[in-house]
Structure formats: C-alpha cells, structure tokens
Nucleic acid binder design. Structure first.
Lengths: 223, 223
DNA sequence: ATGTCAAAATTGGCTTGACCAGTCTTGAAC
DNA sequence: GTTCAAGACTGGTCAAGCCAATTTTGACAT
C-alpha cells in the first residue's frame, strides 16, 4: 500500500528526515531547489510546496538568491538526541505523552477513524506475515491517534519522538530488536488499544497505550 | 511602496480577506484553482503555494477532485499566526505534558527542591514588584519541576515549548499580554502548584498545573 | 600580494502550458 | 423512476523557461 497523502507532505517528511538525521545540521545550507528536486525524484514545484510547509513550521529559512537554511533545533522542536537521552527515556517520554493524548482522543474519535485504525492494523498484520517491518503502519497508528485532539503541536511532538526511534543512531543501538515475534506482540498491543477506543473507554485506552509503550521500551532494551 | 514579501504570502492574505469578509462562508466552496488564480491575477503554482499555507493554518480544506472548502471560524480565528500552530494549542500542549510530568515529580521531590522552588517564587515576586517581567523565574520554576522525573527528553520538550512562547512570532501575537496584573495572577497560580507539591499531593499538583497553563492560555488570547 | 568591483554563475521566484487522477454531474438506457 | 457509464468538472503533478536577488569569480588597479 503506497502513501496516499499529498506529495508535498511526503516530500516534507523526507526533508525533515534529512535534517533530523544530522545530514544537514542547523545553520547549514540544503542543496539548491533544482538539485534537491532531482535528488528526491520530484518536480521543482512540488518540492517548493513542501519547502513552504517546512518554512511555516519553522524548520527552515528560505533566502532568495542565497539558499535554503536549516534553523535551530528549538524552533523545530526537533529531537536531535544529545547525550544522556537513552532509548528507555525516549519510550518513557512517549508513554507519558501518548497516554495523555489518547484520553482526549478517545472522547472525540469518530467511527470513520476507528475504521481507518482497523485498516492500518490489518495492513500491519499483512506486512508482518510477509516478513516485512510494519514501521510505516506503526507510525500511522500512533500519529492518527495523536492528531485526534486537534492540537498540531502535540501531534508534531509525537511524530518527532516516533521518528527518533527509527533514526540511524537508534537503529545501531537497537540491533536485531525487531524480530517477527516482537512485531506480533506489538500488533496485539495495538489491538488492545483499538478495542479500548472502540469502547470509547478513555481510561482503558490510556492504560493500554502506557502499557504498550512501556513494554516496547523493555523489548528494545532486552535485545 | 509595494509589498516585498513572497507572493504566496500576499496571495494568502488576499484569500483570507475573501473568507473573512464573508464572501465565502464556512463550509462553502472557493472558486476552482484555475479560476481563482485568474481572478487574483497570479499563476496557479503561486496560488497553490498560498493554499497550502492556508491549509496548514487550518483556514481551508483541499479535497482532491472536489474543491477548496472554507473551514469553521474557530480554526481560522486563530489568524495571523504564521505557524499552523496557534498560541492556544501551544498552551494546551504544555498543559497536557506538564500536568502529566508533575504527577511523577510530586512523587520524588525532595525538601531541597521545595526550598529551591520557594526561592524562585520569591525572586519572581521581587521582579514583578519592580516592574520587570519574571520570565526567567517562570522558566526556572517549570523546568525545575520538569527535570524531577529524571527524563531528559521530557525536560527538553518542556523547555522547548516554554521557549516557543517567547519567540518573535509569539511576541507579535501577545501584544500587551504581560501586564503587571497578569503576572501577579500567574504568581498566585504558581504558589498553588508549590503548595500541592509541598503536601506531596500528586493529583492536586496535576490539577493546579493544568489549571495554571489553561488560564495562562486564555489570558494570552484575551488580550 | 592585495583590495576593488563588475561580470558571470548560482539560487530562489514566478509563469505558462500541459497532462494525469480523483470526483461529480448528466442523461441515455432500462 | 432508477441505474450507471460517459463526460465534464476539480485538484495533483510535471516540464521548461525566464526573471530577480545573491554570491562567487577573476581581471584590474594599486
């Protein structure tokens, strides 16, 4: 299943990752529009749309005739990982924030969104059965819930924390963490969360989300 | 003197005016891209860039194959914010995160830290009485609490969100928000939070923190 | 060697025109 | 009147080109 979002959003995500991976540090200049567009395999107008989104977010600054510059971390509230921030802390932070967000989400969730979440989990199961890592489905599940309260800042923080886990640095730490079995367990935990949302039970959803992320952190460390 | 800002920003302003004037009520459809571009005397790509900005702001919704629709006032009422993230959202995010963090903080706080927080509030009172803005004391109070659970990531998020409130863009929105009176009220709310921590009462602390940041958001908007 | 500054290269800003891909409308067939 | 497929919308994307601002280059004077 390919990404159905608009192209500029997908491009913005990819550029965010370029920045966030440290390939382009704060203050540094991104490749020229023409070059970056070719590098990403998209047209210049589409790239420009993505750059405007990033500019509005405060992630970059566009200077006419000069170039595209990466702004400081604080503005983009990015999650570059200075020393002292362990994987366990990352999952604790996610547990704290997402279990709070889901309480609000449970109160406003619509039937359509429940169907969407169900589809995401079905897609996740297919990926696992075919031996692939359902990272994108995992991300969509958590982000869809995080967007429900209608707070773009909270949604952005949840997305950033999720992406941090799959950054190259974390990948090195993680090693062979993501086995087929651990993904199956994670899927089951997602099912519990969804069941709580379907029951419109905020406290059960909160508990399920907290439990899932805590357990996910332990699996990460024990491997 | 002609406007030197980027074209997409000027176009976004003009479309906002079209919406705001009531020419296109919430829920109604804007003219098609091609037509609107001609009507405004600009190219379609430039108009599209403006529409993306408005979409991020939450002023419009773009539905492929269908049209461009004006969203409800509530979202677009938070105008002028160059970010898609409004001040209210910022304070909501802080309320959600900090009220969660303080629950853990209340469980591990030491007498030394309580004394430190008391000193910070005393310093805050002095600043207010001398007509200065106790922003640094405010920051220390919130950050000291956020650091208690021992999670560097959560502490950094709290710091980033605090700093974002005093960014240039927020300053423009804030206007005359920070009067001596509003700071006195904020100080009183801090006292309530500290009292709950001194009583080692996590739920009271949580409620006090949530109440403080919610009220702070309202004061921000109402001025 | 060094500083100056204008030409050239580079970069973002914007337009035109075209075609693709969803969505909606219309009207003929039943 | 109902159905449903063809056509007419609408947004999505791409290609190529020219303009305007900035930066770099290098010839020239010192």
């Amino acid at each position: 299943m390919h990404d159905t979002r608009r192209l500029y959003q997908q491009i913005a995500d990819r550029v965010r990752i370029l920045i966030h991976d440290g390939r382009y540090a704060p203050g540094s200049r991104l490749p020229a529009e023409r070059e970056l567009a070719q590098q990403l395999g998209v047209s210049r107008p589409s790239l420009r749309e993505a750059l405007i989104a990033l500019e509005i977010e405060g992630a970059i600054e566009i200077r006419m005739g000069s170039g595209i510059y990466v702004l400081s971390i604080s503005k983009s509230a990015s999650i570059a990982s200075p020393l002292g921030e362990s994987p366990m802390e990352l999952m604790e932070a996610r547990a704290a924030i997402e279990s709070t967000v889901i309480v609000q989400a449970a109160g406003v969730i619509t039937d359509e969104t429940l169907v969407l979440l169900r589809e995401i989990l079905n897609s996740m199961r297919s990926e696992i059965e075919e031996g692939r890592k359902p990272i994108e489905q995992d991300r969509q599940f958590h982000l869809t819930i995080a967007e429900l309260p209608g707070n773009a800042i909270l949604a952005r923080i949840v997305a950033n924390l999720f992406d941090e886990r799959h950054s190259p640095m974390s990948d090195r730490i993680r090693g062979r963490f993501e086995t087929r079995q651990t993904w199956s367990i994670a899927l089951a935990e997602h099912e519990i969360i969804l069941a709580a949302l379907e029951a419109r039970n905020p406290l059960a959803a909160q508990a399920a989300m907290f439990s899932h992320l805590s357990a996910s952190g332990r699996r990460w460390l024990e491997n």
